[in-house]
Write a protein that binds this DNA or RNA. Structure first.
Length: 404
RNA sequence: GGUGGGGUGGCCGAGUGGCUAAUGGCAGCAGACUGUAAAUCUGCCGGGCUUCGCCCUACGAAGGUUCGAAUCCUUCCCCCACCA
């Protein structure tokens, strides 16, 4: 069985640098459920599903790893249910690697529904109004029960325009919480046996044991010195198998994001994957890769897809526009996705106007593929030591279209 | 032929004397969306202009009452229901 073979490997978690050019890197991330070739985009599956898409479609689009969300899965169906059902992989029938976000982003996105304190955060559930508490410890317990390959530290995300004072507070709290996350995660990791018979038939409660790693998150808002202190404090608590950069693309101007990435690039461990959380749009991936980022995730592919907005090599396409009514062309003639393989813009527009879910699905699928392909193209360019030229050309064309 | 009900902006449908160019909804047009409270949200949506304002034309048609009418009166046209 796969599981047993993986156990025999020297390590379940690893990262190998396959090539680099400037800051840009190509690598192989080893996780219990398989390898991830980087740079890579990770589709977001908040509720244990990449919204609207069949896991087979997500696989065929080239996704190597997807996300789940602690807060949302805790509210519904609850980690007990998922654990009883054999863990998130088995529950969702996704057998490739998975990563769960800690709920830290919800501290930011559900700002109107939560109260933050040193111990943790109190949320008023948007589902039934009940009060739910998330702490560094409970986030670890939930993620442990979910059993993704990678668990994320519970962090305090502040808005991009946050004052230095607020950004400092969030950053320092994130460091204190990281200490608690690590202690709790270590305890969980050391505490159990594998709990998994490995034959795939066990219906015992799922206990992921050592098959999960914890990644810390660097915060500090738009302030380079805070970012630097955050990274320093984070690495002191290591070693870690990966490092995440959070609190970007939350309202700050793009040049600020680029500057923060540049300021961190030199100090981030070279032999560990770097994950830029919540990013991004196509241009953000290219800009991020150029600044040393290996992993990305973003809801925009599926959300914008559901809203009828597609990324294409000719610029953004709003499929609902009247100009698409009798357009025979695919969304993007250069795209190799299943949507572009057989559907016209005119038909896709019709599906949106008619309100059929197929339209949402097809454009979501296209957008997911579009971002995954950027990772693949960038990787190939880096390995061919052609990334600098490729990325400049790509960005030049991209911005030309934006202005057209 | 009789009786009753009704005709409102592309469609449906509120409004029964001034705050009405006329609530809503749909359709239409455009925009937003970055670790998902989003198949969502926002703006425009009679015509024209120098468009945080002004001017025209408007609630089946014509005429009337009134300072003022989609709203009241008269006649006509059309639709629906029931009765002959």
């Amino acid at each position: 069985m796969t599981v047993d073979r993986e156990r025999e490997k020297p390590g379940l978690f690893g990262f190998r640098l396959d090539g680099s050019e400037g800051e840009a890197r190509a690598g192989t991330l080893r996780l219990p459920h398989g390898d991830v070739l980087t740079p890579a985009f990770m589709p977001v599956g908040t509720y244990g599903t990449v919204r609207g898409l069949h896991p087979e479609e997500v696989e065929r689009a080239g996704a190597q790893i997807i996300l789940g969300n602690t807060y949302h899965l805790h509210l519904r169906p609850g980690e007990q249910v998922i654990s009883t059902m054999g863990g998130l992989h088995r529950f969702t029938s996704w057998q490739r690697p998975m990563l769960t976000d800690s709920g830290g982003f919800q501290v930011f996105s559900l700002a109107g529904l939560r109260k933050i304190g040193e111990d943790g955060v109190e949320f008023t559930s948007h589902i039934d109004g009940s009060v739910r508490t998330l702490t560094p410890e409970s986030s670890m317990e939930i993620q442990w029960a979910l059993g993704a390959d990678v668990a994320m530290a519970f962090d305090h995300v502040v808005p991009g325009q946050a004052s230095r004072e607020l950004a400092k507070e969030g950053m320092e709290r994130t460091l204190r919480w990281l200490d608690r996350c690590k202690a709790k995660h270590d305890a969980l990791t050391d505490g159990g046996d594998s709990g998994d018979s490995g034959d795939g038939r066990s219906i015992r409660p799922h206990r992921p044991a050592v098959r999960q790693t914890l990644w810390p998150i660097v915060q500090g808002g738009s302030h380079d010195d805070l970012r630097s202190r955050s990274l320093e404090g984070t690495l002191e608590q290591g070693p870690w198998t990966g490092t995440a950069i959070g609190g970007l693309s939350v309202g700050e101007p793009k040049p600020v994001m680029h500057r923060v990435l540049e300021s961190l690039a030199g100090a981030l461990p070279r032999d560990r994957p770097r994950y830029l959380m919540g990013v991004g749009f196509p241009e953000d991936l290219v800009e991020g890769i150029a600044r040393g980022v290996d992993l990305f995730d973003c809801v925009a592919a599926t959300r914008n897809g559901r809203h009828g907005s597609a990324w294409t090599s000719a610029g953004r396409v709003n499929i609902r526009k009247a100009s698409n009514r009798t357009d025979e062309r695919p969304l993007d003639a250069q795209c190799d996705c299943a949507t572009c393989a057989r559907f016209s813009r005119g038909y896709l527009r019709h599906l949106f106007v008619a309100g059929d879910i197929l339209g949402l699905r097809l454009i979501s699928l296209h957008n997911v593929r579009y971002l995954l392909r950027i990772g693949e193209l960038a990787r190939a360019a880096i390995l061919a030591r052609n990334f600098d030229r490729w990325s400049h050309e790509w960005l030049r064309c991209y911005h030309a279209k934006e202005e057209a």
